[in-house]
C-alpha cells in the first residue's frame, strides 16, 4: 500500500469505525450497509480535509468503492 492508500484507509476508518481494517481496501457501497448517500458525503468531506483538496461532490459521482476513490485521488494527485 502506498501513502495515498494508507491515508484513504484512515479516512474510511473515521467514517466506518466498525469496518475491520483488512476489509477497507475492498470496501464498496454495495457491500457495506452503512454506506448510503449521507455516509458518502461524510466520507468525501473527510477525504477533502485529509488531502487538503476542495471536493466537488458531483465529480466524485460513481466513486463508491475504495479502489474507485483511490483512482480519483491518484488522478487528482497526478494533475497536482
Amino acid at each position: 500500500m502506498d501513502n495515498l492508500s494508507d491515508r484513504l484507509v484512515t479516512c474510511f476508518g473515521l467514517v466506518f469505525p466498525n469496518l475491520p481494517l483488512d476489509e477497507i481496501p475492498s470496501a464498496a457501497a454495495g457491500n457495506i450497509s452503512d454506506w448510503d448517500s449521507i455516509a458518502q458525503i461524510n466520507l468525501l468531506s473527510v477525504i477533502g480535509e485529509e488531502f487538503g483538496i476542495g471536493i466537488d461532490f458531483e465529480q466524485f459521482e460513481g466513486a463508491t468503492s475504495f479502489p474507485a476513490l483511490l483512482d480519483r485521488l491518484r488522478e487528482i494527485n497526478g494533475r497536482g
Binding site: I41, L44, S45, G48, E49, G54, I55, D56, F57, E58
Partner: peptide, 11 residues
C-alpha cells in the same frame, strides 16, 4: 463558500 472549504454537493 468553496474558499471556506465548503463542499459543493449539487451544482
Amino acid at each position: 463558500m468553496k474558499a471556506f472549504k465548503a463542499m459543493l454537493i449539487r451544482h
